[in-house]
Nucleic acid binder design. Structure first.
Lengths: 205, 205, 205, 205
DNA sequence: AATGAATGAGATTTCATTCAT
DNA sequence: TATGAATGAAATCTCATTCAT
């Protein structure tokens, strides 16, 4: 939190150092996406990033910290995109709101596939990073669904916690499949299906 | 099951050998479920199973083979349970059919949590075992949804491949959460929510 | 030594047991010939022989004893063949005598290639069996060459110990090559060359 | 040899790394010579070389690669010594030429006994390194003998391939004996005997 | 600050040998 | 006596981490 303290000389001000860091993050994202945390080695990351092994350790204490950083950054960016999408669609009807966030989600996966895969594949039982797939922000959605339910606009025997998590987890996983499958359905068709199956749309009263 | 008519003495008919194998599988399931493939070591499995290190290697070439075996066996048992449930509900109305399979799925997870977690957590990007979470038999469900769609009983702009995978992946993940969360919703409420959000129910015409 | 003492019940009288022993010796010869002592494992020998692992140990204390037995038996048979050949050619001229023993040697290699290869390849620096290639009976030949030298029929500045070992080692190795090479020279040509280069022939006065 | 013009810093130009490598090669030669490939362990080599276990593996993938390297290097050095000897004696009479190469061979064995033993004992049936004992450069000698034979200076019913291999194999093995025997014949007497039994000398017309 | 050679703890794997059946 | 499952000591090998340059 008190990150701005203790900048001994120049910190992120050093351009060379920042380049190294970015190269490590990029190489790490790529490798983590395709081999998983267990299949990735610090030496390999350093080599792929074109820096020395020792350099890796001047930036991150270990590979898990790198993964955590990627997940944290990625999750923040994703949250950002979703919030913006939601905000912009605020005054539209419910289904359009849902479509806006789903679209933003799909676009994020499409635009940053490596980061996306790191976030949603990092769900090894041992993963130190929070389990994104089910844990990913179900709170906000759960809360929204609750409101709808109280307003009588959502099936009353739905458990909103379960519904939120079911959709989030499914959405997270399906995009991993969408990114990897050789002959994926078109973006619009994918989005349309996700929207239809979103609890707020599917179980609306 | 009347295999025990003595198959020449060699073969896996040997009872001592079979006991070892079962002990290893049981210990492996437990450890894999809680630590993931990267966090378990052959030594640890052997110790937990109460056998020597070497014994492990007379049964499996390495820990990945053990994991694969557990996934394969577990998946077969799960398929079996689902098929049986579906068969028994064949003549009932659609929603009852869906409820039957969802219930069977939930019961499987509840009754064999370790195996369940191995199957649905083995989805490391590098997982050698087929990726259960999204890959888990979406074919059968996809086919069923197609029929409904052709019969005009399912929303026509739904991509059945996506719908099937979305539900399956979500269902697989949510049960991991249900098994692990400290204060889980009751079984009936969980099942009810899953049924309502099943594509065949949620998007029926 | 006192082998005939302590025949507790029936020893080589048991035909089944003797069959096992022969199967182990045969399988062992084949495997040792093609993989060397370091590349052969007791389990593998037992399997190739079609007996249980434990059975191997009721016949030999370890694989080195098996090798030693094969080398000893083979060497005895070889010595026998050479002695017989020498005896039968005793009254013939020197070159015919040499030809007789060389022929016998070549025939032995040709007729029992596996045993031959075990004997003459067992020359790993660590081999427990005596190093056949240079050690193989150079005494007899050395003695014979000495006699010729004293009789003025052999070059006097030849070291007979070296000469005997040189020829024996060369002969032993060349037959390994002859057995293994895809397009070997015919037997007669091989023998003729060996005879010509035998010290007693090549350096005769 | 003027490689030292600094090749970018990486590469084997690194002096520390090169020292490690040489220590491993030296320790490996000694151990392989006295215990054979089956009797040496990577741990032992590393310890004898005074480096860590891991260091061994940064230089060679396994102990067989070390052996192969030693054989390759040694064989190259030997070839070099023989070529030089032959070149320097080119204008001398045949017997002197033979004596020159035989002397060079003996000197090589005497000066680098460990390497010599590695090369000529590495002839386990499974040896991964080319079988030095019979395979050692018989081509050059074979060719030389062919010329003599065509020129009518060598017995015409000699198979030059066999003759070359016989002498080479015998020479290779006899020096192993010479290095190991407690009371070896003097160098001059050894060389004289080898020269006399060399095909080109022994069977000259 | 960057580097990469060296390191060794620990994981994996092999295989000779034992022993209950 | 024959068997082969079990065993664990010992070997192989990996890889995160350190540290001298």
């Amino acid at each position: 939190m008190s990150e701005s303290i203790n900048i001994s000389k120049k910190q992120s001000g050093n351009p060379k150092r920042e380049i190294s860091r970015q190269r490590i993050l990029a190489a790490g994202a790529e490798l983590l996406a395709s081999h998983g945390i267990a299949g990735v080695h610090t030496n390999g990351i350093a080599q792929a990033a074109g820096v020395g092994v020792g350099t890796f350790y001047t930036h991150f204490p270990d590979k898990y910290a790198l993964q955590a950083e990627l997940v944290a950054q990625g999750l923040a960016a994703l949250q950002d995109a979703l919030s913006r999408a939601h905000r912009e669609a605020e005054s539209e009807p419910l289904e359009a709101q849902v479509r806006a966030t789903v679209s933003a989600f799909v676009d994020f996966a499409h635009d940053q596939p490596a980061v996306y895969r790191v976030i949603f594949s990092a769900s090894d039982a041992t993963a130190r990073a929070g389990r994104a797939s089910t844990a990913f922000s179900p709170r906000a959605m759960e809360h929204r669904l609750s409101e709808l339910q109280r307003a009588g606009q959502l099936d009353s025997d739905l458990d909103v916690g379960v519904a939120a998590r079911l959709f989030n987890a499914g959405q997270g996983q399906i995009l991993l499949w969408w990114l990897a499958t050789p002959d994926p359905p078109p973006r619009e068709r994918l989005i349309q299906t996700l929207v239809q199956l979103h609890p707020a749309v599917a179980c609306r009263r």
